[in-house]
Every structure is written in C-alpha cells, then in structure tokens.
C-alpha cells in the first residue's frame, strides 16, 4: 500500500522588499512512498528537502499540487494524529523538562493521561533519556535534544514518521543510535521518511531513495536500481609482479597503480579480466583479489549533480 503520495507539489517564495522576486523552492515534486519502507530523501543543502517536509506538515502552504498521506489529504487535521514529525535542528520549549515536554506532546494528540504516562516511560527508555527525564531541555546536548525530538514524534505510536535531518550535527555514536532506532521502527512495520545529505546513512538504511536538487526530483528508486552505471568494471589486485607483467597489463587495464608491493588494476569487462589472468599466469604473478567494481553512491551523487549543472549551462 502507498503511505505517501506526492503529486506535482510546488512552492514559490517571494523574496525582496520592494520588488518581490519569485523563487521556486520546490518544482512539481511527485513521488510515492510505500508502506513499511525506509525512504531516504536526499539532496544537498537548500535542495528543497525541508520545504517538502514543511509542506506536508502544513507549516507552509503549497503554491500548487497536492499530497496524500495514508490516503488522506495532507492538510487533514485528523490524519495528523497518525504521523510523527521531527523538525530540522529541533528547538523545543527549553523551560520544560523532558517528561513535561513529552506529556504536552501527548496531550496535543488527545491521548489519555494514563496512556501518555506509560508511553513516556517506554520512549525515554528507547531513546535512552531515562536519567534526564526531570532535566530541563535547556540543559540538553544536541544529541539529547535530537533524541527527545524523536521521542515526541513517536508518542502517538505513528504509522509514518517524518524525520528532517535526524543525523545532522551528531557524533558517530549518536548517529549509530539514531540509525538503530530507525531500523527498529521498520521492524515494527512503520514507514520512515527521512531527509539527509549524509550518504553513508542512506546506503546502510534505505529501501528506496529520492534525490532532489534545486527543487527538482532527479531520481527515485532503490539503490540497486540507481547504481547500475559502471557495475561491469572489475578491480584486480596482483602481487609479486615484475616489469614485463606490468607492461603487459597496461595494455589491458583501463587504470593501473602501484601501492607498496601491490598492483591495483581496473578492468573494463570480463574479457579483459580473462586476458589479465592469462598475463599474470604467464609472468608468474600472484592474484590477491578480484571483485566487481560497484559504483559508490557518492560517485553517483556527484555525477548526477555534475550532469545537472552541465545541462543547465547556457
């Protein structure tokens, strides 16, 4: 089933004081997110990720287009009882304690006080803030605030959780914790939609991703679908090589470099690999390893933006 369906969502801002200029922050974004998947919403800073999330959360209103969440219009107030949202760089009421803040959040969902109480105990355990429950939020570190923010997004046991840059500004341990948390949510059958510009997070977490740049969708799909590119290339590492072998291999490999007593080769295809193996056998070298070269997500990302800026050039 489809959890989120975004259809040609567009948002213009007007900037400037006297002569207002129209700036398109989001340009006809269309995408669907399936139920139960972890969906990564990816793009550099200023691409329109936060704008999209703010539109879905009714914090700003679209210029055109529409979206459905759980089959209901995105501005259906009752539907918002079934979703959770963590804003970017969350700021919460710093005069409240963690416990009070979660209680307040729970009441805004119309939950009963007994339900809120048991949920607070459970969530403070999950996000590891048990010892800080009576501490005012002003005394929280950035990582703790982020975790308190996730707790408030989960207080209503939502079916979909929207997280805006949940890992930004966190140390490696904090990022690991959030990652485990997101995977835990998936195990519970929840849908997670999160925006990020941190690529390794996407590679380890997401079922599917959408890539957005300057308000436009560049690509959407699973990582294997997106990363087909140069996957036929093969890397081979050889040791105990001599000058003759190196010369022979130079004719076969597209790229060759020496690191210590290892020779690293990039081979364009299977045929080149067989030729290279013959050369190694003939010259008495030793194969250390052979493995297919998968394009890294980072390469894909960089290439995509390079193409985009070339096509934009006059």
């Amino acid at each position: 089933m489809i959890a989120i369906n975004i259809h040609e969502l567009t948002k213009d801002y007007f900037v400037g004081f006297w002569r207002k200029r129209r700036v398109r922050a989001l340009d006809q974004l269309s995408l669907t997110v399936n139920e139960g998947e972890i969906f990564g919403f990816l793009g550099p800073n200023g691409a329109g990720k936060t704008t999209t999330l703010k539109l879905l959360m009714r914090l700003i209103y679209p210029t055109s287009g529409h979206a459905e969440i759980l089959g209901k219009p995105f501005d259906d107030v009752a539907m918002h009882a079934h979703i959770g949202y963590l804003p970017e760089n969350p700021y919460f009421y710093d005069y409240l304690t963690a416990e009070e803040f979660l209680a307040y959040s729970g009441r805004l969902f119309g939950l009963s006080s007994t339900r809120v109480k048991s949920k607070i105990d459970e969530l403070l355990q999950v996000v590891d803030l048990k010892d800080a429950r009576r501490l005012q939020l002003r005394k929280f570190s950035k990582g703790m605030l982020q975790r308190a923010g996730i707790a408030q997004a989960l207080i209503n046991d939502p079916e979909i959780i929207f997280l805006d840059e949940p890992m930004s500004g966190l140390d490696p341990i904090g990022r690991r914790e959030i990652r485990d948390l997101i995977l835990g949510l998936k195990r519970e059958g929840k849908t997670v939609f999160f925006s990020t510009h941190i690529l390794p997070d996407v590679e380890t977490l997401c079922d599917r991703v959408a890539i957005i740049y300057k308000g436009k969708l560049l690509g959407c799909g699973s990582l294997t679908e997106l990363l087909v590119g140069d996957s036929s290339a093969i890397e081979m590492v050889v040791s105990q090589f001599n000058y003759e072998l190196q010369t022979a291999l130079r004719l076969i490999a597209t790229d060759q470099n020496v690191a210590g007593n290892m020779l690293r080769l990039t081979l364009p295809d299977q045929a080149a690999l067989f030729n290279a193996l013959d050369a190694v056998r003939a010259h008495g070298g030793q194969v250390v390893h052979v493995h297919p070269l998968k394009e890294s997500f980072e390469d894909y990302f960089v290439k995509l933006f390079a193409n985009e800026s070339i096509s934009k050039a006059p």
């Binding site: 703010k54 959360m57 009714r58 914090l59 107030v77 009752a78 539907m79 918002h80 009882a81 979703i83 949202y85 963590l86 804003p87 760089n89 969350p90 700021y91 919460f92 009421y93 959040s105 805004l108 969902f109 119309g110 923010g149 408030q152 997004a153 209503n156 929207f162």
Partner: peptide, 10 residues
C-alpha cells in the same frame, strides 16, 4: 521554531 513540532500534530 518550537511551533513546528506543535502544528504538525493534529
């Protein structure tokens, strides 16, 4: 921006 997490709720 304390409002963000409030108004996203019902």
């Amino acid at each position: 921006r304390t409002l963000y997490s409030i108004l996203a709720k019902p």
